[in-house]
Amino acid sequence: MFQVFMRHRELLSELTKREIKSRYKQSILGYAWVILNPFFQMLVMAFVFSHIMRVPVIGVPYALYLYVGLLPWTLFSNSLISSANVLVNNASLITKIYFPREIFVLSTIFAKIVDFALASIVLVLFMVYFRVPITWNIVWFIPIFLIQQIFTYSVSLLVSACNLFYRDIQYVLNLGIVIWMYLTPVIYPVELLPDKYRWIFQVNPMAVLINAYRQVVLSGSSPNLVSLGVAAGVSCAFFIVARWIFNKLEGIFADVV
């Protein structure tokens, strides 16, 4: 994996740039949409869930609470959705030139990470405005983010390869992501769910990760290391399996696309 990455890093960066540059061409606000989109989404949701539905959140303003969960979730869902189509959209390259196909999936995820970084600027401003105290536990952000990316990459590999064979996958995925979001404490706190359903959060790596982000960013505490360790283990195992399957299928991509 690392070798592939090093040998093709220029290709990877060109493909990532292509994706970023081409996306908001011929729009007035251009790349600002990357920041505006999640921001407005957050405003709408914050209004609905704190003024109409009244989700109880302890300690921090709901908008902030929501944003810390929504940004990594958006990164995850956008990565999956664009991965589903990345091989299909690059059919003309896949049938002509050989290089490891996972470069396509990597480049699309990298582009989403750039979006995430930009959108996070607003979050940082929010945190300054609300004077959220920052502790050294914020450093935990890095391993949590890495685990999320390993998990995202694994799911993306499978989704992109499967969609090449049957285009139903992208529709199943869209539906799946909506359901998955409600099974993850993005818009509501974990405490809101009755105890007998809490196990859902234990087996859902995204739930563990979103919780961990909130703990290290908003509460300034350290994350639940046992849950995080399990999420890391599951992600790595999944990564090995997904990559093995992807590499097995890769040889016939050009034949089916």
Partner: peptide, 30 residues
């Protein structure tokens, strides 16, 4: 491969950008 020229070109990008993109795809370095 001079097969179906311009595979990987992106219509929104400039000629310069596409030349670099395509060159890297074909295995050159920047």
């Amino acid at each position: 491969p001079l097969i179906e020229l311009g595979a990987g070109f992106h219509s929104e990008l400039t000629g310069r950008e596409n030349a670099y993109l395509n060159g890297v795809i074909l295995g050159m370095t920047r």
